[in-house]
Design a protein around this nucleic acid. Sequence first.
DNA 1: GCCGTTTTCGGCCCGACTGTTTTCAGTCG
Length: 576
Amino acid sequence: MMNKKEIIKVLEQIAVYMEIKGENAFRVSAYRKAAQALEQDERSLRDIDDVSKLNGIGKGTAAIINELIETGESSVLNELKEEIPEGLIPLLKLPGLGGKKLGKLYQELGVKDRETLKEACESNRIQELAGFGKKSEEKILHALEEANTRPERLPIATVEKAAQFLKDRLASLEDVRRFELAGSYRRARETVKDLDFIVSTDAPASVRESLLNMGEIGEIIGQGDTKLSFTVIIDDDFPLSVDVRLVEDEAFATTLHHFTGSKDHNVLMRQLAKDQGEKISEYGVENVETGEVKTFEDETAFFNHFGLSFIPPEVREGRDELAQFPKDSDLQLISNDDIRGDLHMHTTWSDGAHSIDEMIEACRTRGYDMMAITDHSQFLKVANGLTVERLKRQHEQVRMYNEQYEDMTIFTGIEMDILPDGSLDYDDDVLENIDFVIASIHSSFQQDRNTIQQRLETAARHPKVAMIAHPTGRLIGRRDGYDVDLDWLIDLAKETGTILECNANPNRLDLSAEWLEKAQKAGVPIAINTDAHRIEMLDHMPMGVSTAKRGWLNADSVVNTWGAERLKAWIDKKQT
DNA sequence: GCCGTTTTCGGCCCGACTGTTTTCAGTCG
């Protein structure tokens, strides 16, 4: 029997094949919408009695889904596959090639995969085709070469530096009135395709000039009056695509909203506008009857115009955010201002770069009133993990600092390894006097699910273990986590009163937004921590908060908002 | 293909830019 994920994939595949076949674009997107409807429904396939009741799934797509459930195959997809070579599918990802053009290349030149496309370019047959030319041919060849070297989406951690560089650059330009980084970066997706900047200026030509004269420009992809596309190369790395929109200040809010997306969110907003006789574009909201265009000072005013309150970019995914944020909404998603402390960080005692008091001062600067010093335990020798003796000495120091600072509660802590054999790295009597014990896995990732889960269960059931850190162990774009059933882990955390972490390091973001959402529903408290190994890494906190927002977490689900006393009471409760 | 007290047909978000044309289709976000 096919699972939901596989069915979603089939529907999306059908859409892609139809696109190349040259089917009506609305028909194509109907299949995508059906896939989306399935994806956004939280229920498992078994719990949905009639798929055609879902909004976006009708007679046709329901028949396909039911056929898949019954037979594991789709006759529609099978027929499409007979008709259209599979090798064409990945070619759709090449910039500049859509379904129409690819269909033509297939029909007229017999292009059926990368190789035949390359040959067609090299034998100069493409420029002969109506609608194509010399430039198209060169672009396709170029795109084919690029596709080998560049991944499609990049983990946000890898674009952080370039994003900061461009922000600094724009901030330094006199002709820039205000600007913002929009797109999926602003929505805090885990990976991004490019960086989208919205820039308010009265002198677009000057800003364009300044940007294009930066030394870090790779190639200019396109430029018009309001739009500028180029690649930047920061750090001798790969080229990263950047889109800049230059707008007059009165259009800034609507342009920012438009290019923050998501596409699906924009569609919802535009339908809402249409229902009240208006039309949304980058430039404002037009009254269809009078043609009058209204502009807004900021996004809040824009949302208010439609009877909504400000919808955080992180939840603009075209789900039910419009219904969740009416003007008088009392829904308070977690925000940066709610965070009162950071409960996972390292110092020079293990593999951190700064001393205990340097970290304390850094946390005070960030306005916190609680924190935990959590170095590595003895098992992690490469990280200079603390022996029992060193641990005790460190904690004496931490307690001393805790006495010293009246405005900060400093918990003694440890990030204790869960060993490959399933045991914990310290004996109970060592753990006895520690305020905040974190348990985590740093070794033997390849063990089977059962073994991994036994390790996690030992930790979660231990009365002194307050939290499990980076619960999946993944590194985005680099390493999958270990094998764990997260539904199981969330149930276990709920049963044992164990906090789960949302690790704010942009390489991790672990748990991810979708699991945070499930954890909150189950009533499991979440801690958002930076796992900082140096002072600057404390500034990853907003990435964690944004991830939490994507998971619709409210402030009360996040222990960082509780304050030291309430947190301590929660930990104590587990031990009794 | 889906949807609907503006409903069973005729829409389906909207606009910029490119390369091809010589007024526009295709692609993209």
